[in-house]
């Protein structure tokens, strides 16, 4: 059987930059989804089951021990907003670290660039965290365990800003990890250290003034506060400076894009 040949224009990667990058991103996204979640087992379900288990566990633990978490906010919604936010800024970098090392052979296809690999993983992570967040809220709401957000638009704004921060951080750490193995070793413990300060388990109002000032240098804490204000509205007093986060994100993104651009990647057989 004769093979059908494609007109050469289609084999020229540079014919239309944006179109090509769109194609590559689409292909990488599907590839990532299939390899991460597979086709046969529980697959995508884990995306929701894991945070759901966590939320249920925290709710159970805190209800049982009546731990004071600094406010009388509904504990389930508090746990969901905190954990979902943490998943995003922690997992995006985790997925981008060593992402190129494992995909070097893809670079034989000239149209696939490191930025595409990072973006596809970031998008997938963002989609996953967002879907699991929405699904959790709806699921717990169906059982009257949580109320719906008071200001969904603010919540969305905070969520997107947090995702932006996660994306920038992910690309910086991803690019660094190609140069030094330390990143791969140090990010997990470092992210665990950051976890208690990131607002997953407290609200800023419960902190002493001095601690508030210092901890609010963490962009993710500002975002979590903003997200929670959107969620709980008048029930809490939130502390944040979103202008600071936006400026931080802009600088971070610039650094990230420069680092990814300057990265020299050599494709490798096998």
């Amino acid at each position: 059987m004769p093979s059908k040949l494609v007109e050469p224009a289609q084999a020229t990667p540079s014919s239309n930059g944006l179109l090509v990058q769109g194609r590559v991103l689409h292909a990488l996204l599907i590839r990532e989804m299939l390899t991460r979640y597979g086709r046969n087992n529980l697959g995508f379900l884990w995306l929701f089951l894991e945070p759901m288990l966590f939320t249920l566990a925290v709710t159970a633990l805190w209800t049982a021990t009546r731990t004071i978490h600094g406010s009388d906010l509904p504990i389930t919604a508090f746990a969901i907003t905190g954990y979902a936010s943490m998943l995003m800024w922690r997992n995006m970098p985790a997925r981008c670290i060593n992402a190129i090392k494992g995909n070097k052979s893809l670079m034989f296809h000239r149209q696939v660039r490191p930025l595409d690999v990072y973006l596809s993983r970031i998008l997938l992570e963002f989609g996953g965290s967002s879907a699991s967040f929405v699904l959790l809220v709806v699921a717990f709401w169906a059982f009257d365990a949580v109320a719906l957000p008071e200001d969904a638009l603010q919540l969305l704004g905070g969520w997107l800003t947090l995702g932006w921060f996660g994306a920038g951080l992910a690309m910086v750490l991803g690019a660094l990890s190609e140069k030094s193995e330390l990143v791969d070793k140090l990010w997990p413990p470092f992210s665990y250290l950051l976890f208690p300060f990131s607002g997953a388990a407290f609200i800023v109002e419960s902190l002493p003034e001095k601690a508030r000032e210092i901890l609010l240098y963490l962009p993710m804490l500002n975002c979590v506060e903003f997200i929670r204000e959107g969620y709980f509205g008048t029930k809490m007093r939130a502390y944040y400076d979103m202008e600071y986060v936006v400026v931080f994100n802009l600088v971070l993104s610039l650094v990230a894009l420069a680092m990814v651009r300057l990265q020299t990647v050599e494709a490798d057989y096998e």
């Binding site: 494609v6 289609q10 084999a11 179109l19 090509v20 194609r23 590559v24 689409h26 292909a27 599907i30 590839r31 299939l34 296809h109 149209q111 696939v112």
Partner: peptide, 12 residues
């Protein structure tokens, strides 16, 4: 799936 991937990135 690998063939699909190649087809996608080359737009065929």
């Amino acid at each position: 799936d690998n063939l699909r991937f190649i087809c996608r990135i080359y737009g065929v």
